[in-house]
């Protein structure tokens, strides 16, 4: 049964990646405000997409395909936090307030007379 090992492994990784992507989407629907939703989309989404590309690399058994897939994973892990950060910053600056449950907002006092530094 050792011949099909890469297929079993790739299949498990593929389903795992799809499950993480689905959880990210559920999080985006269920979480209460933009910034908490961003947690779900940036972390679970990046891991889900990355795992699917890893599955492609594992199943293909081809150095050229696997290299491109791994470069794709690296690219995804580099760009996802950048886009999340850009969107979070843009939303904050255009006065999109965090949800009412938010305990502390030290960024709000940034422009006041009391800078939130230690």
């Amino acid at each position: 049964m050792l011949t099909g090992l890469e297929l079993y492994l790739g299949g498990v990784v593929l389903v795992l990646g799809a499950a993480f992507t689905l959880l990210a989407a559920i999080g985006v629907v269920r979480l209460p405000d933009l910034y908490t939703r961003m947690h779900a989309a940036s972390k679970a989404g990046a891991v889900g997409g990355g795992l699917i590309l890893v599955a492609v690399a594992v199943v293909s058994q081809d150095a050229a395909v696997a290299t491109r897939a791994i470069i794709g994973v690296a690219f995804l892990l580099l760009t996802t936090p950048v886009s999340a950060h850009l969107l979070a910053r843009a939303s904050y600056l255009s006065r999109y307030k965090p949800g009412s449950q938010t305990l502390i907002d030290e960024l709000a006092s940034k422009n006041g007379q009391n800078p939130a530094t230690e």
């Binding site: 993480f20 959880l23 999080g27 910034y35 679970a44 990046a46 449950q101 502390i104 907002d105």
Partner: peptide
């Protein structure tokens, strides 16, 4: 840490009592 964080977010998202599980904050 990346895998740990994805699993943690997944667990939070699946909780039925979502609102009480969250304590969001922005800190410096």
């Amino acid at each position: 840490e990346l895998m740990a964080s994805a699993v943690r977010v997944a667990i939070v998202v699946m909780r039925p009592d979502l609102k009480s599980a969250l304590r969001p904050a922005i800190i410096a």
